[in-house]
Nucleic acid binder design. Sequence first.
DNA 1: ATATTAAATTCGAATGTCAAATTTATTTTG
DNA 2: CAAAATAAATTTGACATTCGAATTTAATAT
Lengths: 411, 411
Amino acid sequence: MPGLPAQASDLRESNRQHILAAIRRLELTARVDIARETGISAATVTSITADLVAEGLVEEVVDPNPGRETSRGRPRVYLRIRPDAFLVAGAKIANDRITVTLVDFRGEELHHHVALLNTGPVPEAAALVERLAEATAVALGALGRSNDDLSAIGVGLPGFIDAPTGVVYWSPSFVERNVDFRQALVSAFSCPVSLDNDANLAALAEQWFGYGRGLKDFLVVTIEHGVGMGIVLNGEIYRGTRGIGAEFGHTKIQIDGALCRCGQRGCLEAYVSDYALLREASVVLKGRIASGAPEQAQLEVLFGAAASGHPAAQSILNRASRMFGLALANLVNIFDPALIIFSGEQMRYDLLYGQQVLDHLHGNIIAVDRTPPEVRVHRWGDRIWARGAAAMAIDGLTHRANRSLRPALVT
Amino acid sequence: MPGLPAQASDLRESNRQHILAAIRRLELTARVDIARETGISAATVTSITADLVAEGLVEEVVDPNPGRETSRGRPRVYLRIRPDAFLVAGAKIANDRITVTLVDFRGEELHHHVALLNTGPVPEAAALVERLAEATAVALGALGRSNDDLSAIGVGLPGFIDAPTGVVYWSPSFVERNVDFRQALVSAFSCPVSLDNDANLAALAEQWFGYGRGLKDFLVVTIEHGVGMGIVLNGEIYRGTRGIGAEFGHTKIQIDGALCRCGQRGCLEAYVSDYALLREASVVLKGRIASGAPEQAQLEVLFGAAASGHPAAQSILNRASRMFGLALANLVNIFDPALIIFSGEQMRYDLLYGQQVLDHLHGNIIAVDRTPPEVRVHRWGDRIWARGAAAMAIDGLTHRANRSLRPALVT
DNA sequence: ATATTAAATTCGAATGTCAAATTTATTTTG
DNA sequence: CAAAATAAATTTGACATTCGAATTTAATAT
């Protein structure tokens, strides 16, 4: 039961999206190439790109690259996404900071700003909206722009988020449950708002700017404070029935195993996340770890001890990497993806996310005459996740219906 | 990057499929209802159904149900799938038998036949094709039809099967690896052949005839000799990058756990499948189990002992059900499906697949203010799986391109 | 017999794509 | 340096398809 268009006008919208996507992917491209790339006839490409140029979403570029070799015939006219068609914001909300990035319509970053949150009690949703608005205003100010210049904003935060409706069932970032957080953001910004789980934004960032470009199916696994996953199937983020992302971190890898923050036992997160590692480290590295020290510093001690041969420290990391490899193998056995991307800043801990994990992964997947999926590591921080959030907002803008509030800036 | 139609003719094909699917789903329906159901205009419904009737895929029914209340106005003309448009076979190959079913174009069973395989050494692929051809010929003969009357055949078997290409990488049903099994079947039957993993056929059967009707996303878990899974996402069977189904049975639930047939340790299958249960039973129920007895009989002894209070027997089944519940919980945490269907004949062992499994499932899923997925049990045997195979073949026939070999029988 | 009603069909406008022909803007050639 | 060659882009006209509105059709109600 496919959900395809039923009218001719839907057909045009579909081709329009194809062409826009092709221009975005190829960055700088002539109409001939778009026709070849998409399979749409040159006549139709002419017609649709004329619309796009008239609307200000796409622009012609005069002399893109004088270096390329010349030939006779009418010279190709290059097209690209018009950068200043829209000004879009993306934000990533983490437990201790808000990262805001401002991007043009291509998704290129114009400016970014990090606002630290005070690490006291968890705030209320309204307060968080306030902080986000402040941080965005600062970033906009640095560009000499104001909130009125913003065409859309995308926001990512941890927790259980129903992206289609914008309802946050639960998030560690604020105290309330079942909040219509998107509505709150729309009130604050008065522009279209997209909302999603932060791991899905990491996946979107990979799809737009990273290793996922051009791929239809891949997985992105994130390790930060917890463990997350974004699933791209058939070119789209998979969200399950209730619109909520996959809970890879609470996948069980040990019956009656280690206690997890969620109250259950044996979750992957209870073995590999920051707090899980520190919980064990606190027992065997008591003398070395200052109890009040920030988590990052404590982790440094643990990894340093392991590197210098401390057996218990090594044992902690060994177990974590074995568990991680096992959980990843389960993903491969279920999804058979072409590519798995590890994304996150913590990735710098090579000890944990290195060869040992891969060995365990490969040792636990069913591989009958087929090669295991490719695994790539992306040491990307909050800034790129925020850019993923902006990409989500841009995606909303390219669908004509969503562009009612603020039309493109045609000069 | 959506894969939508680019031409007007593609649009018609798409609407055609929608309408055909609606007629199939509603079984008996007037054109007005199709228009309302699909959102396609009445004018277009008239046009497309005229084609379908002319092609012999759909027929008008004169007086479907005199009992329904009458009204004034032009009476509705009912349409239905024309049963005798095509004669289609479906086959399920199991380790000890081949089940063949013959269905009409609606998917209704006309006749079925079970051919036992001798349980000696694993045969060669060519021999299996031979046996399948024999079994199909017997079934056809019972209807007074021959191979020439067959419009398509769908075949399901266990193993790693690339459905799009028809290559069997490995199957317990024959000795060779990497066989182009579809080509072998095409040679034998000289009609279009669809091939897939048997668990995917169980999923297809649920989608066409069972609990999955009308649902876009659900999982089907099968327990027979091994453990399998079929995933339906967005109305389609999900097959991963290499076209091979999900390997739920080799999902790991215990690091360094029980040894599995596949050579790895801790696979779900190594805890819950027939051979896993018997492996343990043989240790503690030595006196009661005749070593040469068929597996079914041995299993009966195990379940009987557990039911009558034998502690070791109970312990075996308890562990299996806990492991099964845990593995299912992982699926829920990853997919968040609306429905999980347990399918298989072994389901009669309520002890194993009963409340205890559900309790473990519910105890291990992340559920923040949301209800757990519905779980339904379908005690369906090989016959229905074979019908799923036939459904797959029918699906191939409804796409115009695949209907070149043998056109519909228009009277 | 006539009015009413509802399903199905027909008709014409609108939309859209595409292949082929044409235009346009270059480079190469004589 | 003009003419030929070439390749990109555009225009033109044929064709396909959908849809709303008008029309036809076949029944029941009055």
